[in-house]
Design a binder for these strands. Structure first.
Lengths: 101, 101
DNA sequence: GGCGTCGTTCGATAGTTGTCGAACAAGGGT
DNA sequence: ACCCTTGTTCGACAACTATCGAACGACGCC
């Protein structure tokens, strides 16, 4: 199975934004931004593994992540440099935790 | 009818992103960023006025725009300064037209 | 080889969303 | 007063999406 990781410039902005416009996926992206490359299973945000797999697929197909096999696991990482180049400031703006009040 | 324009800090990031993750709404935001305050009717992007009204409502309730009545029309404007303050770089990153290739 | 782990895929389902036409409301002009 | 313009709201409908359990596949290990 090709992991279907598109060229970021070929992904419409709306798809990138839609991929980020979900709470679970945003948590995944935040975790990746902080923790670097991580196994799929490390994102346990109260959803089933089927749902998690679905969200990772959305992120991957929106050009936000890359996935590679590593034994029985799969390692996911943010395509941060590409994102920062194409959408400078986007990730920073989104990932910055806002003041609670 | 109060226009229901929330405090931006009270709007979840995902709602802001979701509001921007639609082609019609993104066109509206682009037009507002370029043209400043505009009447609702000036956004004729091939959708009915009902649909346009719906999209403007989504943008307003996501904290992206402000609306004020002006005679028979309604003028809409981007809350750019607030957005730039809370999400620095977000609008710029999104509104910048990417190279076609 | 067999088993457990990790992850994807399938089918189903409930909820959300984009779209429309039609009906309604508010203003301005003649 | 009438009408036309401008927008909003109300169903209705189709399309998409988030979610799950279950079945399946791939890999390492014992």
């Amino acid at each position: 199975m090709e992991p279907h990781e598109p060229d970021l410039t070929a992904v419409p902005v709306t798809s990138v934004l839609a991929a980020l416009a979900d709470d679970v996926r945003l948590q995944i992206v935040r975790a990746l931004a902080e923790g670097g490359e991580s196994a799929c299973g490390s994102f346990d945000f109260g959803v089933s593994k089927a749902t998690r797999s679905h969200h990772l697929k959305v992120l991957r197909e929106a050009g936000l992540t890359r996935t590679r096999a590593a034994g029985t696991s799969r390692l996911v990482r943010l395509r941060r440099d590409e994102l920062d180049k194409l959408y400078p400031g986007l990730l920073d703006a989104i990932l910055t935790q806002r003041p609670p009040a």
